[in-house]
Amino acid sequence: MKKVIFASGAVLMLATGAAQAQEKTLTISVYALAQDEYKQIIYDPFEKVCGCKLVVETGNSVERIAKMEANKANPVVDMAVVSMADALAASRAGLIDKVDTSKLSNFDKLYDIAKDPNKDGMSVGYTFYATSIAYRSDKMKIESWADLLKPEYASHIAWPNVTTNQGPPALYMLGQALGKDTPDLKAAIAAVGEKKDEIVTFYEKSSQLVQLMQQEEIWAAPIGRFTWAPFTKLGMPIAWATPKEGQTGGMNVMVVTKGSKNRDLALQFMDFWLSADVQTKVAEKMIDSPANKEVKLSEAAANNLTYGEETAKSLKLIPSAVALDNRAGWIKSWNEAVGQ
């Protein structure tokens, strides 16, 4: 028995010792999406280029920012990719530093909207996406965001929880459809609240939607374009809506942690990710739409993603500051109207 303990103690020490012995380690924090493809396209090639080791933490944007906040005194991650609003939140909380764009050789090749999304120099966009409604075209017709709440449809839809990246944009568009688009989203939240018993679920993880759609538990849900591809593989008549109010969406950005000891390595990694080569490969796997304007996509990829500067400009995005200043209020009204 004692031998086992010594052995496991030794393993433990080796494990921690090995981590320290490694000369260059870059710790990144990303969305959990498509890690197998990222590894193949981004992580492994980059490790070869830099001769360093990448450690990857995954999770959703809010959760990972919360963790960075907890580790503020001794940052664990060197760079993170988060949503635009979370980048602003991190910047206000003093968790991140200005991005030294002079070290990014691909910076000038980015779409203008991606160069400095929050206008504070603290983040660089690497992908953007449209958010609209995936729906069963044989069961329903979607021409407006408000159609989802029609009595005959409401009991067959999933709506994104307000705490997810898709929640506020979807509510924002619903507000436009209802003709009451105030920043507090009160009217939209109240409208969803009225239907809360009928709506199947307020989803937090979009992966579950594929299962629910396949089981015919739901017919429609507002989703980000980056989760669209799996729906097309179900062999069901599922369409992407183009509501008359337009599509909304979001942008994901890269940030550098304040106090990171690997600043240059982090910038080198960001530059690698922003290169036309990497951005093309990721896009061809139908994961992230490119933010680098030199990327030329095949028709299949272009059709499945949110491609091109014109498209990007047409998306109705909630400004980060509005999102951040109202977030607490949204969650409060959501909990009052929907949560119970």
């Binding site: 959990a32 999406l33 498509a34 890690q35 995954t58 999770g59 993880k205 992966s207 579950q208 594929v210 299962q211």
Partner: peptide, 8 residues
């Protein structure tokens, strides 16, 4: 669980 959140 993390995997299920991405791929179902």
């Amino acid at each position: 669980i993390a995997y299920m959140e991405i791929v179902f």
